[in-house]
Design a protein around this nucleic acid. Structure first.
Length: 480
RNA sequence: CGGGGCGUGGCUCAGCCUGGUAGAGCGCCUGGUUCGGGACCAGGAGGCCGGAGGUUCGAAUCCUCUCGCCCCGACCA
């Protein structure tokens, strides 16, 4: 047996992740461009599925797609004080164009609130123009110091929703609606359970009043912020003078929201389900749901096997691996690493008996089924796999969520956790939303992930740092 | 920015210390035998050794400069 090209999770989780990404043909480091990656066909196909699922939901909630320039005048970033402070360190700036130094440099967008603020102010005059519900699919650049494929790259693909409203309750409703959309796609499409919650004031988006997030748990117990939705209040409305005349004739600033998910979701997907054999894709995000590997020994077996394979492939919507010069064994390993949910084996024995062998990626179980039942069994298997993967992840999340009632306890649980070694937990503790408390947690490289919207624990308690009353426990963890 | 590592066929790397004109495995091409969990045999293609300068009769190897990438930390979707 050949040695696996994939490092075991147990041995080194971070290396395992890299191996799975590479072997699964999801992406590779660009190398010639610092911190950037090439998203390969299998990875891009997953992104296309996610885009489709998200976009459908955006449209269903009344949003329209549009597109803004990649370059933003540098001065725009400076108009919102918190915003510029938050993003300045990670900006890439264009200073020369057309062979000449520019009078005012352009920044390559790290996010588009500012340029959108500019246009919103042109487009909005009356309360009748509101709400404005827009979304943009785009790439952005943030000059991060440390990158990891999909999880944090210098350039990444995402969508950013931007909306403007005439009042705060309606804006907040939008913020929470989109957070629900993200949770829906994460849980029901990606089979990745998440915790919806509010970010602490210290962790909120630069320029927002409040940020909301969905947090997922990876197999090493680290948290991954999988999506964010921001209540921008009137901050950008004021910075960019986005005003409207109300029904009562008063001039008011709009209330804005922004929300986004990125190709980081793919990293989360991989670290939620994949195993030591490679990628595992939940059926609903798998670009190829089933592959048939034909097997034949003698030349005269070839015709009948291929004929049956092609016929079944058409019925099942499966892809037939017709590659020459690759043994069936090599093909099994190939599709296993690519995460295809179901692989069918079809050889002379099966052609003779009218059967086909169905193998399920996540459990590795094989079953021999009559060919006429293959379509039904495939559908049932894909459905079961989708459900099982979610439940498995949900159980892992539950099993690794623990309560703590003192800061010492929290630190003891999280102190030695690393991305490589794993052992991470979601520690639930009563903690007041105060930047000083965030700083204390950061002291041992953990963070308050969010304050859950729904309390699944024991309600109010005393803050473990200040002793003040707080309504419920927050999620503390080490994160990507 | 600090610490570490590395640039040599498509990939992973050896060769460098002790200069003599480039090698292995995998992959690729051709032919044949194979094929129910990573096949085998035979033949073959492919690299001026990241870049620039220097030392030398001669540099992948020694010296100087330079560019870039990866990993670990501080920043973050």
């Amino acid at each position: 047996m050949a040695e696996s090209p994939i490092t075991a999770r147990e041995k080194d989780f971070a290396t395992w992740y890299q191996d799975v990404v590479l072997q699964g043909d999801m992406a590779e480091p660009a190398e010639i461009v610092k911190g950037c990656m090439v998203i390969k066909p299998n990875g891009y196909a997953v992104w296309e599925v996610l885009q489709r699922e998200l976009d459908t939901r955006f449209k269903a909630t009344g949003h329209q797609n549009l597109y803004f320039p990649l370059l933003i005048p540098e001065s725009f970033l400076k108009k919102e004080a918190e915003h510029v402070e938050g993003f300045a360190p990670e900006l890439a700036v264009v200073t020369i164009a057309g062979g000449k130094e520019l009078e005012e440099p352009y920044v390559i967008r790290p996010t588009s609130e500012t340029i959108i603020g500019h246009f919103f102010s042109k487009w909005i005059q009356s309360y009748r123009d509101l709400p404005l519900l827009y979304n943009q699919w785009a790439n952005v650049i943030r000059w991060e110091l440390r990158t990891r494929m999909f999880l944090r790259t210098t350039e990444f693909l995402w969508q950013e929703g931007h909306t403007a409203h005439s009042n705060h309750p309606e804006a907040l409703e939008e913020v929470l609606r989109m957070l629900d959309v993200y949770a829906d796609v994460a849980e029901n499409i990606m089979a990745m359970p998440v915790i919806k919650g509010v970010k602490t004031r210290a962790e909120k988006f630069a320029g927002a009043n409040r940020s909301y997030s969905i947090e997922a748990m990876m197999q090493n117990g680290l948290a991954l912020q999988a999506g964010t939705s921001h209540d921008l209040g009137q901050n950008f409305g004021k910075a960019f003078d986005v005003t409207f005349q109300s029904k009562e004739g008063k001039l008011e600033h709009v209330w804005q929201t922004s929300w986004g998910v990125s190709t980081r979701l793919i990293g989360g997907l991989i670290m939620t389900h994949s195993d030591d054999k490679g990628l595992v894709l939940p059926p609903k995000v798998a670009p190829r749901k089933a592959v048939i590997v034909p097997i034949f020994r003698k030349e005269e077996e070839r015709g009948p096997v291929m004929e049956t394979a092609m016929k079944l492939a058409a019925e099942l919507g499966a892809f037939v691996d017709t590659r020459e010069g690759q043994s069936p064994g090599a093909k099994f390993f190939h599709w296993e690493r690519l995460g295809v949910p179901v692989v069918f084996e079809l050889g002379p024995r099966d052609v003779a008996s009218g059967n086909i062998v169905l193998k399920r990626r996540d459990t590795g179980t094989k079953e021999v089924i009559p060919q006429p039942e293959a379509a039904n069994r495939l559908a049932a298997t894909l459905e079961a796999m989708q459900t099982d993967l979610f439940n498995k992840a949900k159980n892992r999340l539950k099993a690794n969520t623990v309560l703590a009632n003192s800061i010492g306890e929290v630190q003891e649980i999280l102190n030695d956790v690393t991305a490589e070694k794993g052992g991470g937990k979601f520690v639930m503790a009563h903690l007041k939303d105060d930047p000083a408390n965030d700083a204390r947690i950061k002291g041992f490289k953990a963070s308050i992930r969010n304050i859950p919207l729904v309390d699944e624990f024991d309600g109010p308690g005393k803050c473990i740092l200040t002793g003040e009353d707080v309504s419920h426990r927050v999620v503390i963890a080490k994160a990507y």
